[in-house]
Amino acid sequence: MIGNANILARRIPRQHRSRQTVEAVLAAVPLVLKRHGVASITTNRIAEVAGVSIGSLYQYFPDKSSVFSALHERHVGDVRNILERNIAAPKSSSFRELVVDLVEELVDLHSVETELHQLVSASVDQGPEHFRRALRAVFERAMAQCGSENMNRILFVLPSLVEGVVHGVTLSPLTSSQAKGEAVKATLAYLSAHPELGR
């Protein structure tokens, strides 16, 4: 995993002003990307767009990799919140509907700032395994209530399927709505082979 050294080296913002500085730095990255392109993402340019001194940036981010690491941590937190919210208080009663709700929310999350997501994913040495494991845990908990006899087979396929279509959104030329529709169709096509999971 990236950035264990970077994470440890980062100073934790405790005061309101410090947190504002960190937020400004993180918010500046997509702006630099849109205005100037990937090659222009440097700590100096990030600090300039954020409206902070380079010294202030370095207090919290020793290098550009640590900025990307912080953006990745934030994204992982957003994904975790979606998963936890859906398993704690599902909007629907069936497993099938739970999965569709999750896919739709995760596609929405990954449809925002797709170029930034690609850049951060490429810069952070962490594959999608953690995402698949988290999905598997959610699906396993929900399926236990369905009493599916095919749980192991479904858990072999479904987390990878959902991870693939969700992360595929960042590379897709489709609109967010189109991508969501295709992701849901692919998921439902697989789930249709397992009617015991509910309609």
Rank of each mutant, 00 (worst) to 15 (best):
F61N: 00
L26Y: 06
F95S: 07
F61P: 00
D78A: 14
S53H: 03
I54Y: 00
E104F: 03
H72E: 11
V112D: 15
S66L: 02
D63E: 04
S65H: 05
R74I: 13
A47N: 04
F95G: 04
G77I: 10
H75Q: 13
I87W: 12
I82H: 06
S93H: 12
Y60V: 00
N81T: 06
T114E: 15
E105G: 09
H36M: 09
L106M: 12
N44F: 11
P30Q: 06
T114Q: 15
R80C: 03
V49G: 00
A28C: 11
I82F: 03
I54N: 02
V112S: 14
L57N: 00
H36Q: 13
G77K: 10
S53E: 01
V32D: 07
I46V: 15
G55M: 01
H36C: 08
S111N: 10
I46Q: 00
V107F: 11
Q15D: 10
E104D: 10
L33V: 11
L31H: 02
D108N: 09
F68T: 01
R17T: 13
V29I: 10
Q15K: 15
K34G: 03
A24W: 01
A88V: 06
S69K: 11
E105C: 03
E84T: 11
V107Y: 09
E23C: 10
S56N: 08
S92T: 15
E115D: 15
V49A: 01
R85V: 02
V67H: 03
K64L: 13
F61V: 00
Q15E: 15
R96S: 15
H75N: 10
L116P: 05
V25N: 04
A27L: 09
E97V: 10
F68V: 05
D78G: 01
V76K: 12
E104S: 12
